[in-house]
Design a protein around this nucleic acid. Structure first.
Lengths: 143, 143
DNA sequence: ATTAATGCAAACACTTTGCAATGGA
DNA sequence: TCCATTGCAAAGTGTTTGCATTAAT
């Protein structure tokens, strides 16, 4: 047991539950989603613990904190540089995998320390594109 | 007067002040920064008005709402697709202009409605790269 | 045994909203 | 005049923090 031994922090049941929930998770969950999902099996889990654990994982580079959703932070266990698209209607975040590519300007690589890099798209996913509800009212064209 | 006549909303002194503050502004200000900057000349300005005006401009496509700063929304009057880098130390957002380039995957263009697209980098700007304070403690490697 | 992590509640920061008063069109 | 906009205050949401209790190493 304990594939998570090398993270560099104490392995509590709460942290193991979070790690297991995130492992391979492609859903880009929010802290609250993670919290609610774990509550079923670990009824003493608290939201504060979720937040502090996510911060600890992020600090150790085991997790990506996504800012693409203007309403709340989303978390991604896939720490490789990759791209995202968010559907401004259903708020789903889709991985763009390796399909998109980019080239960093030379000057930037020299003068800055680049830590992460990703392409961020906003738009409508196929589902929401169809429905195309007359919700133009509250649409926010973010980014 | 009134280069802003075609926006499609009533031109109040508050809105004109916001539009003038944003015009050509490359600083990617937050709502509060805009508010404080205008307070000097328009002492009755309220933060709520800043927020509602920014939302109105965004809805009309006259403004980009940036999510790259995990702490607060930032606003960009430059509505052309372009890229940003945020310094995780000083929180400055730098335009990457046309230097970086990307290619959207075919499948995406077909099945999705892409509204915006930008490259988002995180890292350290030249200034902060030097100082490189032992602030590793609270660093958040966002995105 | 020691030190770090948990869980609760309170505090925080940013953003939105209800509503009466005001002022553009 | 009439309807949209303002400004204030209160409420809403997501996130962080202080602290006593608990548990991992």
């Amino acid at each position: 047991m304990h594939k998570y031994k090398d993270i560099g922090f104490a392995l509590t049941p709460q942290r193991i539950a979070i790690l297991e929930y995130l492992d391979g998770n492609k859903g880009h969950p929010s802290a609250d989603e993670i919290y609610k999902a774990i509550l079923g099996t670990l009824p003493t889990m608290s939201l504060a613990t979720v937040y502090t654990t996510l911060a600890a994982l992020n600090k150790r580079g085991k997790l990506r904190m996504l800012t693409i959703d203007p309403e709340k932070r989303r978390y991604d266990p896939d720490i490789a540089d990759h791209s995202h698209m968010i559907c401004i209607s259903c708020k789903r975040i889709i991985d763009l995998d390796g399909d998109a590519h980019y080239a960093l300007p030379e000057a930037l690589v020299k003068d800055f320390s680049v830590l992460t890099c990703s392409i961020e798209l906003t738009g409508l996913c196929p589902n929401c594109k169809q429905q195309e509800r007359a919700s133009t009212e509250e649409d926010q064209y973010v980014r």
